[in-house]
Each structure stands twice: as structure tokens, then as C-alpha cells.
Design a binder for these strands. Structure first.
Lengths: 226, 226
DNA sequence: ACCTGAACACCGTTCAAGT
DNA sequence: ACCTGAACACCGTTCAAGT
């Protein structure tokens, strides 16, 4: 159809949307480092100058691509009526986590500026849920940004680490090997790490994320009680 | 003396340590993006091949530089005897935060692998403090990694954002402008964000970090009580 | 063993020229 | 207004050659 990827020129006109869409695809496929203008112009069947007509530079393009990903994630989330704000906060956070996990290049950019349109929408969602709790209004700003920052920061790191690992290597095997290295350390200087080495073997990033989130929500509830 | 920076060749021999040291300096001065082998070889008064004799590639060099920064931060922290584990955990976290704030390029690399020697020492410190609390031993692994991840992730994002901002622009002025933009949004779609817009004006990243940390520690205490 | 520095492949960006 | 594509400056890395 219109999006032919064979050699030659493209039939239809370019647009900002088309460029951003192709960027998301290629970022998913090759990661932030592997994403180049060469790949982009090949897929779009066009020249470099054409891309620069629609976006200012590479940075802006990645920025737009990241915002697009968040936008899709937010619209894809159902309302979940009836549930209390805390569980809805949890659902929202894990949903964003999963989305960014599928687009591991995006997370580091999401937080960079709360200026991104859809990032602000995310903050709005979090804040709206906080408003429904019994927490004092003057704490809302601090708590909403805390949760927002926890969500985006930790997700960014988790996905960045996942992206670093070579694709061929099995994740469980890597953790197992690392656990063995921990166990082999000197217990005199590493009493804690050697003791918990075995736990590392069945570590799961997503569980870990949820644990931290629950700890935050526990803290929230403790403050609510006062 | 030996470290002359004028043109010509260097008098003393190169070493891994010397290379890493120069890298830390240049990363501090120019950031991760601005750090190039050209700058490095100029400062070291040597050729590119010489650097490659001591380190495998750019990635390894930045990795070593980041680990070095954490090492310095950990040795520079006093024992603080007498204080309870929770306040010592807080001191440790803020100390690391401040260090990484001074080397904003380092934070994103610290978490990438818990394999870095000094990063593991940091986890050890956190775990050691947790051991002194009344929290059940089987929770130690999950909680230590939670705090570790919170510390490194949030710091990474804070410093990354600080690094993105153009050096010339005043940070307070930027926040003020952003706050005005928030206030100008449509209250129908952004009820929360418009309401808290004023708070953004006196937002401080470090305070924000501490707030989140306290929330985590509150959650910890709540679990302790059970 | 350690270093030199030219050469290479690749990258983002620009711009005169076209439609 | 939108696109082409060669040209440019710059980057990390290699490697034959030196000491």
C-alpha cells in the first residue's frame, strides 16, 4: 500500500506524525543507540533534509516519540470504577510500568521535562487519585510528584538495564551467575550481600517495583492516619 | 609538574588510573555527551591508541569513572555513631545524592549493573543498616534493593534533568515560567495540575528526594510495627 | 609492554538546488 | 511549502609502525 519499504521514493507526502511513528518503530527495534537517521530515511524512503523539515533535530524527534508512547498508554487505560484510589493508583503505575517496559528507550525521556503534554496528563491522573484520599490538600503536590518521580525513575532504570543486557543471553542465567559471584565474596567485608545472595536468583524487576510502590503507599496511609 | 597541559608529549607513563582520573575531570566539565576522545587525548597529551591500551572502549571508561565517583563518596562518609539506623540511612542516601549531583553524568551508570565494585559496597551499607532495624530478616533483600533502587533511580533522573537545562538559564526563572504555563491550562481537563501550579514555583529536587525517602521510611516503620 | 597517529566507517546536520 | 542528496564536521575505533 502506501507504506512500501522497497527501494525508490515514497508515494504519499511526509508529515510530522508519519516521521514520529516511524521513529517509534525503529526505536523499539534498535534502541536509542541503534536508532539513526540512516535507518529512518531508508524506512521512510526519503532524504535527511525531508526529516529536518518536520522536526528540528534528533533530540526533538526522540522526545516526540517518547511522548507518543505515554499518550497511547494513558488512553489504553480503563476507568476501573468502584475501586478505592489506592488500588487505582497501583493499577495506573503498573500499567505505565508495563508500557515503558515494552518501549525501553522511552522511559529516560519521560521525566526529563514534565513539559511533555502526555507526561503532564500522567501527573494529572496521579493527582486526581490523591485528591480522593483523606490526605491533606497542602501535601498533594509533594506526594503526587513523589509518586510520579518514583514511577518514572525506577521504570527508566529497570528498562535501561534490560536494554543493556545482550539480547542473546538468558536473563535468569545472568542473575544466577551474578548471585554466585555475590555468594563468593568475602563475608567479612560483605556480610549483608553474601547473606542475601541466594535471594538475587529469583529477583524480578516488576515485583521489585511493586514492592517499592507498596512501601510508598504504606507510608502514605501512615501519614493519612495522623 | 608532571601533569602539564601544554602541547607536546607527556613526560610520565600513562596508567588506567590516570586515564580514569582525566575522564572524571572531563565528564564533570563537559557532561557525558560533551566528553570525547579528542578532549581526552589532548588533556593526556597522547594518542587515541594509548587510551585503548588501558581501557577496552568508551563505555568501559565511563563505567570505571562512575564507579570511581561512588567509591570516593562512600569513603568520604563518617561513621556517625550513636544514631539510630533510620537516620543513618537517611544521611547515607542524602550524601550519595549530593555526590551524584556534583557528577551528574555518573548516576545513570551507577545502577546499570550492581556489578560495579563500589555500587555493591553501597548496597552493603544499606543492607547493614537494615539489619539493625526490627524488620524481619526475610524482608531484608526486598527492602534493601528497594531503597537502593529509589536512591539511584531518582538521583539519576534529577541530575539528568539538571544537566539538560542550558547552563545560562536561571533554574528558578525556568520553574516560574513552567508554573505560569501550568496555571494557564484548562482547569476542566487539568483540575489537579492547575490547582497545584503555584507550588511548582518553589519546588526543590533535593527536598523532593527527601520527601520520597521519608515516605519509604514511614512505610518501613509501618511494616516494622506489624 | 606501551605508545603514535593516520586511516576508517559512521554519525547528525546543513544547504544549494529542485518541484 | 516540501523534498533531494551530496557535502561537512565530528565521532569512536583500528592498526601498522615505532620504542
Amino acid at each position: 500500500m502506501s507504506q512500501t519499504r522497497s527501494r525508490g521514493r515514497r508515494a504519499d507526502a511526509l508529515s510530522k506524525d508519519v516521521v514520529v511513528h516511524a521513529a517509534v518503530e525503529l526505536l523499539d527495534e534498535h534502541g536509542e543507540r541503534g536508532f539513526t537517521f540512516k535507518l529512518l530515511t531508508e524506512r521512510l524512503q526519503t532524504g535527511a533534509g525531508a526529516v529536518y523539515w518536520h522536526v528540528a533535530n534528533r533530540d526533538e524527534l526522540v522526545y516526540l516519540a517518547a511522548d507518543h508512547v505515554i499518550g497511547v498508554a494513558l488512553t489504553g487505560l480503563s476507568a476501573e470504577p468502584g475501586a478505592d484510589p489506592e488500588t487505582r493508583l497501583r493499577t495506573l503505575a503498573l500499567h505505565i510500568y508495563d508500557t515503558l517496559d515494552r518501549h525501553s528507550w522511552a522511559a529516560p525521556h519521560v521525566i526529563a521535562a514534565v513539559t511533555m503534554p502526555n507526561t503532564m496528563l500522567l501527573l494529572e491522573r496521579i493527582g486526581g487519585l490523591l485528591t480522593e484520599t483523606r490526605l491533606p490538600a497542602e501535601r498533594h503536590f509533594a506526594l503526587a510528584t513523589t509518586i510520579f518521580i518514583y514511577l518514572t525513575s525506577v521504570t527508566a532504570q529497570d528498562t535501561a538495564r534490560a536494554a543493556t543486557a545482550e539480547p542473546g543471553v538468558d536473563r535468569d542465567a545472568m542473575l544466577g551467575e551474578e548471585a554466585r559471584r555475590w555468594a563468593a565474596l568475602d563475608p567479612a567485608t560483605f556480610p549483608f550481600v553474601t547473606r542475601i545472595a541466594a535471594d538475587l536468583g529469583h529477583h524480578d524487576d516488576r515485583d521489585q517495583f511493586a514492592t517499592g510502590l507498596d512501601l510508598l503507599l504504606d507510608g502514605l496511609r501512615a501519614q493519612e492516619g495522623r
